[in-house]
């Protein structure tokens, strides 16, 4: 018999290294001789989109077109350390460092421009330096040439706020900030085979502020797929310290056919300490999927599974046990 059920999962997750571990990102913003902006960060792009959003953050902070910003990353001989692409920390931590370096460079550009124009009230707007009191303008190339053809460079350093928890009281400020989400799924359980099918899902994800909504959606899809595999498929089957399921024939990960359509809801509640309000979501997007699926299985067939993955064998055994 096929039975359907709904389940929900809600989580909160502290991003960054946490518990007092120094969590520092560094960035350098540079105006080169062509009047283009280069951002140097040691941040690693692994497909999560760091390269895209760090360039966007720099462009926004400087008020220049994103097309003239080049992100130079991962080359440790020329980039400052921005920490690991881990702990869901690149958007928040390195994003802040990039924003600080871009803001410092902007100040420097304005200082040079003031000298050239003999004006006090200047701003950068869409890549052009404008006066608020006259119609005088300068290009970024003018600034690059005026500073002796050399490169204007400014550093940005950001350290996340984290303290060690008191081992006696459990109090402290281990993580900053926290990311929150709520997932809902509908499953169909085949009580004859024990196979669980995810019919559909809705994922609402607090991101502080979505620097790039399309990338956020991609992260939600990917996180849900990993959470789905974690919940019902992926079993490394450890035996005396050896992984027995060491190939894709027995360590099953979701295929396109296993993934439901997902309604993605991006919740924007800007984080006051984040770059333009943004927070990291890399890990959080995975976590709520498994509890939501296990709750939905309970709703569908009335058995409470407490061990993952809920393979067909385990589910059939639990159903049989309940029937006594």
């Amino acid at each position: 018999m096929k039975k359907r059920g709904f389940g929900y999962g809600c989580i909160f997750y502290g991003t960054g290294y946490g518990n007092g571990f120094p969590d520092i990102s560094r960035s350098i913003a540079e105006l080169d001789t062509k009047g283009h902006i280069n951002i140097y960060v040691g941040a690693t792009e692994v497909g999560q989109g760091a390269k895209t959003i760090l360039g966007q953050i720099a462009a926004e902070a400087l008020d220049v077109p994103v097309e003239i910003v080049t992100l130079i990353h991962e080359d440790t001989s020329i980039t400052p350390d921005a920490g690991t692409a881990a702990a869901s920390r690149q958007t928040y931590n390195t994003g802040n460092a990039v924003k600080i370096s871009a803001e410092e460079l902007k100040k420097e550009i304005i200082v040079v421009a003031k000298g050239l124009l003999n004006e006090d009230h200047l701003e950068i707007s869409n890549g052009v330096i404008r006066s608020n009191t006259s119609d005088k303008t300068l290009t970024l190339k003018d600034i690059a040439e005026a500073s002796g053809g050399g490169f204007l460079r400014k550093d940005g350093i950001f350290q996340a706020n984290t303290t060690e928890m008191d081992p006696e009281t459990g109090q402290g400020n281990p993580y900053w900030p926290y990311t929150i989400n709520a997932y809902a799924v509908e499953v169909e359980v085949d009580t004859t085979t024990g196979i669980v099918d995810i019919i559909r899902a809705a994922c609402s994800q607090d991101v502080g502020r979505a620097i790039n909504p399309s990338l956020v959606e991609g992260q939600i899809d990917g996180g849900f797929a990993m959470g789905l595999g974690y919940a019902i498929f992926e079993d490394i089957n450890l035996d005396k310290g050896r992984i027995k399921h060491n190939r894709f024939t027995n360590y099953l990960i979701p295929t396109a056919l296993d993934m439901p359509e997902i309604e993605k809801i991006i919740v924007e509640d800007p984080e006051s300490t984040g770059p333009f309000g943004a927070k990291g979501i890399g890990e959080p997007v995975m976590i709520a999927a498994a509890p939501a699926i296990l709750n939905a299985i309970y709703d569908a067939v009335g058995v409470r599974l407490t061990e993952i993955p809920v393979t067909p064998e385990k589910l059939l055994k639990a159903l049989k046990k309940r029937e006594g």
Binding site: G47, E217, G218, I220, D221, G222, G223, F224, A225, M226, F248, I253, P254, T255, A256, L257, M259, E261, I262
Partner: peptide, 23 residues
């Protein structure tokens, strides 16, 4: 159809994207 697309790429595993944007 979306179902036929999912069948068409079901032999290609992806760990990052969750497939939906590929579909």
């Amino acid at each position: 159809s979306r179902k036929e697309i999912k069948e068409g790429i079901s032999g290609n595993l992806c760990r990052c994207t969750g497939y939906n944007k590929i579909v």
